[in-house]
Computed example of a mutant assay.
Amino acid sequence: MGQPAEKPRRATYADLEAVPPHKVAELVRGTLHVFPRPAPKHARASSGLGAELTGPFDHGKGGPGGWWILDEPELHFPDPDAPGAIDALVPDLAGWRRERMPELPETAYFALAPDWICEVLSPSTASFDRDEKMPVYAREGVRHAWLVDPIARTLEVYALGQDRCWGLAAVHRDAAHVRVEPFDAIELDLAVLWAK
């Protein structure tokens, strides 16, 4: 009789820290996920959206203010499968209402779940973003999620239901001008997200 198969070793935060800086690493339920840095269209969509939201919502210029809007913040949440372990996720963009988080933490990560996240999809990350990260965001109570696809030129808008499941609220395409929660105080021109 053969030996029983060994359980694979759970990755730790130390494994994540050992990833070379030219890669993006995230840790979900003990599995380390390593990806190349974003491609130009991905970076353009993320940067464009951040620029559109930061003025009116983070700085209060031409909008209501009241938010922290950040690029690629590292989020730490308890891993429900392993006491003492964490899930470490890095959304492309995230936002916190200042009423929930009046000051930025002193740590290099955020333990408080954002109110909104945005993931910019790429061929190498789309299934991970949808199948691994979105359930963690729901579990942690993130209220709003946007998935931006710079190749298909779409913005998918999700809202968290009472059952902690995502509901697809809308899909916007191409150069649409839209008002989308939680940032519906301004109109977004989606054309600024796509590389020209």
Rank of each mutant, 00 (worst) to 15 (best):
D71T: 01
V180Q: 10
P83I: 01
H172E: 10
V34A: 07
A45P: 13
A5V: 14
H144Y: 15
E119Y: 00
R164G: 07
E26G: 07
A169W: 01
M134E: 02
D189V: 04
P56M: 01
M1D: 14
T54C: 02
V192M: 01
W146E: 12
R98W: 07
A85P: 11
W194Q: 06
P64Q: 10
R130H: 03
T154W: 05
F57K: 11
E156Y: 03
E72A: 15
A108R: 12
K23L: 07
P135Y: 12
P114D: 03
G167P: 02
C165P: 00
E187R: 15
R37A: 14
A176L: 05
H177F: 02
W194G: 13
G63H: 01
S47A: 13
R139C: 02
L168N: 08
F57D: 03
K7L: 15
P56G: 06
D87C: 12
A175C: 09
E74W: 00
R130A: 05
I186L: 03
G48Q: 03
D87T: 08
A18D: 11
A111Y: 00
G50C: 07
A170R: 12
F35E: 10
P182Y: 04
V120W: 07
A169G: 07
G60P: 14
F110W: 09
Y137W: 08
V148M: 11
H177C: 06
A159M: 06
P8V: 11
R44E: 08
V90F: 00
R10D: 01
F77K: 04
E74F: 01
A159R: 11
A170K: 10
A108V: 02
A82G: 07
A195I: 03
V28N: 02
M134P: 08
H172Q: 06
H42R: 09
E17W: 02
P102L: 05
A170E: 12
G62S: 03
A94N: 04
D15H: 05
I117V: 15
V120T: 14
D15A: 06
G30V: 13
